[in-house]
Design a binder for these strands. Structure first.
Length: 265
DNA sequence: AAATTAACCAACCGCCAAAAA
DNA sequence: CTTTTTGGCGGTTGGTTAATT
């Protein structure tokens, strides 16, 4: 037996929001705020909606200063770099893009950006620009998890990187991903110091650099997160001077040891 | 012009962790 | 402490629009 539903599915409206509903929700929140309780909100606001639906509508659409569409090249780079670094943590990625929502970033990646990157990759390979003297990309190919030697970068392995999801996927693959990126910390309970993070490093065509505490955190985890078991060591890094995307062109190259414990540019 | 396919994106679902009881 | 409730997240779906045949 699963948990009880958050609301009575029978008496609750689903599907697209009407302008009238939008107005009710907006008006209510403008005058009363969310009250810290989404479940109770729809009744008070006179909406026949599930609280979760109201929350989603507000956060993704009605909230002030939301941007839709027209992602800039700069935003593309940030999304690609962070996706490469941390996978599909859309809320974290969106937090670095003012006005963007996780849903929007996710949709954009899944429908456009992923394909765009793949095409660029294929075009680059076709022109023999494959990484020049730089070392091969990290061993994302499945062979690695079966302990076969992966000697060269291939379209397939990079394609897999592009397709790569974060959590919720195959557990073995997730583990491989985690270890591949330990040098920029993705693993649980691992501090940057513990994995010997450099003061400054490039990642995904972006330069990451240690910085003073409490200014513009890249991933700004809550202070309490040091005791948690999730990502926790981005707090001392800031993204600066984007210089191209890392799969192609003149951007940085990638390297990984056979053990997959380093990821340097 | 009609039918089919692809692309897009808002919104839903279920899971998880934190908070409240 | 355990159980229940809630908020938040990411994966996915399904309706709509655009492009192609």
């Amino acid at each position: 037996m699963g948990r009880a539903p958050c609301c009575d599915k029978g008496s609750v409206k689903k599907g697209p929001w009407s302008p009238e509903e939008d107005r009710k929700l907006k008006d209510y929140i403008h005058t009363n705020g969310t009250g810290g309780n989404w479940i109770a909100l729809p009744t008070k606001a006179g909406l026949k909606r599930c609280g979760k639906s109201c929350r989603l509508r507000w956060l993704n659409y009605l909230r002030p200063n939301i941007k839709h569409g027209d992602f800039s090249d700069e935003e593309d780079r940030v999304i690609c770099a962070l996706f490469a670094a941390i996978g599909s943590r859309w809320s974290i990625i969106a937090a670095q893009l003012p006005g963007r929502t996780d849903n929007d970033v996710k949709n954009y990646w899944n429908t456009k950006l992923k394909k765009k990157q793949l095409h660029l990759l294929i075009a680059a390979a076709a022109h023999g620009q494959q990484y020049g003297s730089r070392p091969p990309a990290p061993p994302f190919a499945l062979e690695q998890q079966h302990h076969h030697h992966t000697s060269s970068t291939s379209i397939a392995s990079l394609g897999q990187l592009l397709m790569f999801g974060g959590r919720g996927g195959d557990q073995q693959q997730q583990q491989q991903y985690t270890s591949s990126f330990s040098s920029v910390d993705i693993s649980n309970n691992t501090s940057a110091a513990a994995v010997g993070l450099q003061e400054s490093f490039m990642f995904g065509g972006l330069q990451f650099q240690q910085q003073e505490e409490e200014t513009n955190n890249l991933l700004s985890p809550p202070a309490a997160s040091s005791s948690g078991n999730d990502i926790m060591t981005y707090e001392h890094h800031e993204m600066i001077s984007p210089s191209g995307f890392f799969f192609y062109g003149d951007g940085a190259g990638a390297a990984a040891t056979q053990e997959g414990t380093r990821f340097l540019y």
